[in-house]
Amino acid sequence: MSSQLGQPVSLPLVRGSDTGGERADAARNRQLLLAAAKTLIDDQGAAAVTMDAVAREAGVGKGTVFRRFGSRTGLMMALLDHSEHALQHDYLSGPEPLGPGAPPLDRLIAYGRARLALTIAHLDILLEAGSDDPDRLNHPAWRMSTLHVQYLLSELGYPGGLDTVAIAIQAPLEAIAVRHVIEVIGLTAEQIADDWERMVRLLAAGLR
């Protein structure tokens, strides 16, 4: 299983977010704009990410944002891709407890909290991009995450097949589930993370 956890996979990108062959100054511009968008999300939520707001935050003209990403959706998808690559890097080769070296339970809990944080940060674009897509569990990023969860479950000594339990463990971290729990049930992000961790710890305790 661990041999399958190689380099981070790429998310399908929309027009304007491809970095292949871009000049160094264009690459710097792209990183500047993505950092500005992330700052807006961290400070004000995803709804605050407009092309105008990102341009102001980055100190560039709005035309620069449109030329780089094409549209708000293009910008958000590029930001999601950037964040997904960062998360994959962290759980494949980053520091403990998310990365290699920590006990598998600690890594699984760290992964769940990091995945939830990413889901909440990009909730609107994740919902727009495919919560109703029947093939979403076959998305490259989701497949990579599932392989990682399966690997950690095997390290914990989970008996039998891992496919169903890996999907079940990740289900509360999906965008559609997170939206329901926050908007309908009224839990906070920290409460969701704590409930998810409790579930995983109880599962791991049953394996001893």
Rank of each mutant, 00 (worst) to 15 (best):
P12K: 04
L13M: 14
V14N: 05
R15T: 13
D25L: 06
A26V: 15
A26T: 15
A27M: 14
A27H: 14
A27V: 14
R28F: 09
R30G: 06
Q31I: 11
L32T: 10
L34A: 03
A35H: 12
A35E: 15
A46L: 13
A48P: 01
M51D: 05
A53R: 05
V54Y: 12
A55G: 10
K62V: 07
R68K: 10
S71K: 06
T73R: 15
L80A: 11
S83Y: 04
E84G: 01
A86H: 05
L87F: 03
L87N: 00
Y91I: 05
E96L: 06
P103T: 09
L118V: 10
I120P: 00
I120V: 14
A121C: 11
L123M: 05
D124G: 10
P134H: 09
L137Q: 10
S145E: 12
Q150H: 06
Q150I: 00
Y151M: 12
L156S: 02
Y158Q: 13
T164E: 12
I169Q: 04
P172G: 01
P172W: 01
I176Q: 12
L187K: 06
T188M: 08
I192K: 00
D194Q: 12
W196H: 09
W196P: 00
M199Y: 03
V200R: 03
L202Q: 14
R208P: 09
